[in-house]
């Protein structure tokens, strides 16, 4: 894969997340907001949003993580054995506006699976979606409520998000697959 361009650096990511945090508390009563990161890279993004909301509003909103592996519609197509990780939702969803957080919104299938997980845990007042990058190419009728950056892409391109907590650096870049993928 060939690097085409860096789209967001650490400062740009931070600015986008600050804006999203403001939008979330603008749209919802902060006391009724819960954040749920989708594994893997939605988790540090959720933690950043959690810290920003606490900073801006003084509210320690509930935060959790979901692992969507068991809910995917393409399990048998995923290479190797998927590593199943725990879903951690230490609070009741009842009465909360739950914001799902992921790094990239693409086909929408991961978000669909994450919503199914939440449904199995309880009845949230609403489920909203925040993503750092929306790259288009949706395969399901899903849209994000909060978007860090819209990045039009071709099908041959790949969006790569790195997080300081996982990869050592905050960055969003766009790559091109050099050979046609079968």
């Amino acid at each position: 894969m060939r690097l085409k361009a860096n789209i967001m650096d650490a400062a740009q990511i931070d600015r986008a997340l600050s804006r999203i945090a403001h939008e979330i508390v603008e749209k919802n009563t902060p006391e009724r907001v819960a954040l749920v990161g989708i594994r893997t890279r939605g988790v540090p993004l959720a933690e950043t949003l959690h810290a920003k909301i606490k900073e801006y509003e003084g509210v320690d909103v509930p935060i959790g993580t979901v692992d969507v592996t068991l809910y995917r519609d393409d399990l048998s197509q995923v290479a190797a054995s998927p590593v199943v990780q725990a879903t951690e939702l230490g609070f009741s969803l009842e009465g909360f506006h739950v914001v799902l957080i992921d790094d990239v919104l693409f086909t929408g299938r991961t978000v669909r699976a994450a919503m199914d997980v939440l449904m199995d845990y309880g009845r949230a007042t609403s489920i909203q979606l925040a993503v750092l990058v929306d790259r288009g190419h949706r395969e399901l009728p899903i849209r994000a409520d909060y978007v860090g950056k819209n990045v039009p892409t071709s099908a041959r391109e790949v969006i790569k998000v790195t997080c300081a907590e996982i990869d050592g650096e905050d960055n969003v870049s766009i790559h091109e697959v050099e050979e046609a993928v079968r």
Binding site: Q77, S81, P82, T107, T110, V161, V177
Partner: peptide
């Protein structure tokens, strides 16, 4: 790009780092 590749990309992580599978 196959669905499988797209799915793997979307989660932006490898499915299994060491590629261990059962028989």
């Amino acid at each position: 790009m196959t669905d499988a590749v797209a799915a793997a990309r979307e989660t932006s992580e490898s499915s299994a780092d060491d590629g261990v599978t059962l028989n």
